[in-house]
Design a protein around this nucleic acid. Sequence first.
RNA 1: GGAGAGGUGGCCGAGUGGUUUAAGGCGCACGCCUGGAACGCGUGUAUAGUAGCAAUACUAUCGAGGGUUCGAAUCCCUCUCUCUCCGCCA
Length: 433
Amino acid sequence: MHDIQKIRDNPKKFAELQKRRGVKIDVEEIITLDSSKRTEMTKLQNLQNERNELSKQIGLQKGKDKSGKANELINKVHDLKDQISQLENQITVTNEHLEAILLGLPNLPYDDVPIGSDESFNIEIEAKRYGKINDKKTAEHFEIDTIEGMMDFETAARVSGSRFVYLRGQLALLERALGQFMLDTHTIKNGYTEIAPPLIVNNSSMLGTAQLPKFEDDQFQVIVRDNDLADQNNRKWLIPTAEVSLTNIVREKITDKADLPLRFVALTSCFRAEAGAAGRDTRGMIRQHQFQKVELVSITEPELSDEEHNRMLECAETILKMLELPYRVMLLSSGDMGFSAQKTYDLEVWMPGQQAYREISSISNCGDFQARRMKARYRDGNKNTKYLHTLNGSGVALGRALIAILENYQTPDGIQVPDVLKKYMNNLSTIKI
RNA sequence: GGAGAGGUGGCCGAGUGGUUUAAGGCGCACGCCUGGAACGCGUGUAUAGUAGCAAUACUAUCGAGGGUUCGAAUCCCUCUCUCUCCGCCA
């Protein structure tokens, strides 16, 4: 959600920054709605004041038992009531219109975000490139000979549908080991607090982190009773990322400055309808309706979020470095960023089967954009309340990490187990397919 | 799922239609007192918004949303969450 004050102060700049994100807006409409809303509010408040004053007098008159005078006043207030409810309705309409517009607008890009319409304008942070890539094409993970015994899409299709998978035996173990390893690293080395959060969240939480209202089609809704469908504000959703459960911890709270920064990490399943991705990455485990991910969330005061953003990037990098997977870091362009982000780094891991870098982690600073929607605030030293900054990043996606290992650690004997994972896999050194 | 009890400021807690502009207490801040502290005394202490250069004034908010009324923390309806008992359940 945007600070209406900022739009008011410099509407042209706001429109220009939205344009960088590929969003055309009618900023005049916003300004007009805002100013008529405020005019109406002033009027309403004056009428309410008048009503309150008269009602007080009625109470006094009745106490004195001058009933004639009281009735006269009651009639007077009666007229006010009509005007008040009419104005209230008018304001509701204006406000809903304005809210609908504002809730649908993405966060503004930071000054150093490259301007461009899509991923081709992303910029690599060359200093961050890590590892030697294998430029000989290997088998893609789903092409590995006889892997279907351990990675079973066929059964999943029959039991669940497309874009699901069964992992079996040592491959299931590998995924579990990855989760354990990542959680240990983030809690012990990186100072995050481990959370086991709910996977089902309410409507307000989804609005808070901005999956709603715009991306409803990408979500799985949970329906228990018929009236779950009827009451729009009472719906429940499967989380598309633990970002939702973790960030909403501070929703409608005033956090003590002394407790900041908050750093949470969680390993959860994530659920995505992938409505807009029909036909993309249809083979293999790259894009599933359900996948596991370790998610990092930091909550900071505004002055420290840039620093925290870089720190979070390094925390995610640590995982790939320890797994010895080659990767590069991209600074996303204004057109490629997620809705809530003001600045995003992507970690792309080298997939020798595709001979391409693929996204394995996305690390975003959302500034106060989500905090405004969530009413997540903190008290600064001078007893003023201010909006927090929220950041989130994958640290990292388990399924894609697993694929990266299958493709980068292929040998004729099987899949070598990365050293850091061995202790989580009963010292297994090779997965024989 | 059934029955019952509840949700009031940072916290505890009073309040069942009109000086409640939410009593009182705890906590916190400042001042007085003190050699210094405790005790005591005094003052202050919610959030959001509208108008205003500002001081300030006003409006809204007692779980959420509707309703009744000249007037609602208080009465009515719906939803939601918490607690107790029963049922079911990993």
